[in-house]
Design a protein around this nucleic acid. Sequence first.
DNA 1: CGGGTGACAGATATTGAAATCTGTCATCCG
DNA 2: CGGATGACAGATTTCAATATCTGTCACCCG
Lengths: 197, 197
Amino acid sequence: MPPTAAEPLTPERILETTEEVLRRFGPTKATVVDVARALGVSHGSVYRHFPSKAALREAVTDRWLAKSVVVLERIASAPAESAPSKLEAWLEALFAAKRHKAGDDPELFATYTVLLAENSGTVEQHLTELIDQLARIIAQGVADGSLAAPDVPAAARAVFDATGRFHDPQYAAEWFSPTILAEFEAVTALVIRGLRA
Amino acid sequence: MPPTAAEPLTPERILETTEEVLRRFGPTKATVVDVARALGVSHGSVYRHFPSKAALREAVTDRWLAKSVVVLERIASAPAESAPSKLEAWLEALFAAKRHKAGDDPELFATYTVLLAENSGTVEQHLTELIDQLARIIAQGVADGSLAAPDVPAAARAVFDATGRFHDPQYAAEWFSPTILAEFEAVTALVIRGLRA
DNA sequence: CGGGTGACAGATATTGAAATCTGTCATCCG
DNA sequence: CGGATGACAGATTTCAATATCTGTCACCCG
């Protein structure tokens, strides 16, 4: 890795390089010294922009999670569809996105799974966003009479919890079983039926 | 640990002692030599009764799982109640049992969690039994018209999957959050509503 | 002869010394 | 003076030597 030529050292550049280093070395071997080396600076310089290795890794995690919300956000905000089919589409999109991430580059996915485990606070925030999206879909359904939920945020949370097997990375190994799709559809159908008016 | 006096060396006694050794030393440090020492025999003797350390640990796992099915079996086979409330009672009993095991002796629970992870085949069998119990409850409900399910085994499986957060040991840490009971009830209610006729 | 033994080979785990890393800071440079 | 540096202390990781464990087996004993 040729040290990058002298451009201003920004948090942004450090984050990009950290991602790269994590991708190449994995979560256990990637060090702040590696990141500094890849940037062609001393590791002390990295500490000017991030207070600790943990903070740096957390920032990377945050960035990665932020990206993955975008697709789902689009579905949640789509105007056309009925709430039940929007709900189904959203759950399918979530599962498909996770499955692809896990399948396309298992090592990178494993790396991020480790990062997620060490940044439960950041993950929690991210989950809150996702559950908010679900709540908006459910609220729409309640408004138009297609869904029933006495407590919309609680229902959103329940839907998210009930489908955990299909988005929690701890289950990633099972996402490639031949029966997983049938299982996903059974749970999804059950949950949506439970919400119908 | 005073070596036990000379009684016939049976698989049963070996299993008991292995449990004891696992309890005291934990899953990583417990060895076949330890078990033999505790029994006052040579480790070669243990290998007369179990072909490998893995088989021995699997037998212990199996034993432990078998015990934990009994309580639930009683609920599943109870004659009186309606299917929906039986379903709810069963799910509550499952969660309560797991929660108690995890809370009463966290170290032992952690030990068994490790054992479970290394014996996925045995676990799968056990899960099949549990899902069968669910299927029987749902079938009863379909028969008496209180529940609707086009495919009873699939529905049972879906109920089990949807409530994973409340029985999968991977989530044990969350079982003592102050909001967990509300979450459990929300998911349970959602799922049961989804099954109602 | 069924059941137990202990010595053995290869695999795995432990240990402690050396290397590397994290985080700080006095110092330097433009 | 803002930003980078590299030397440093203490924490963590690596590595290789050593010890322990797993699984086998020829042998022994009641």
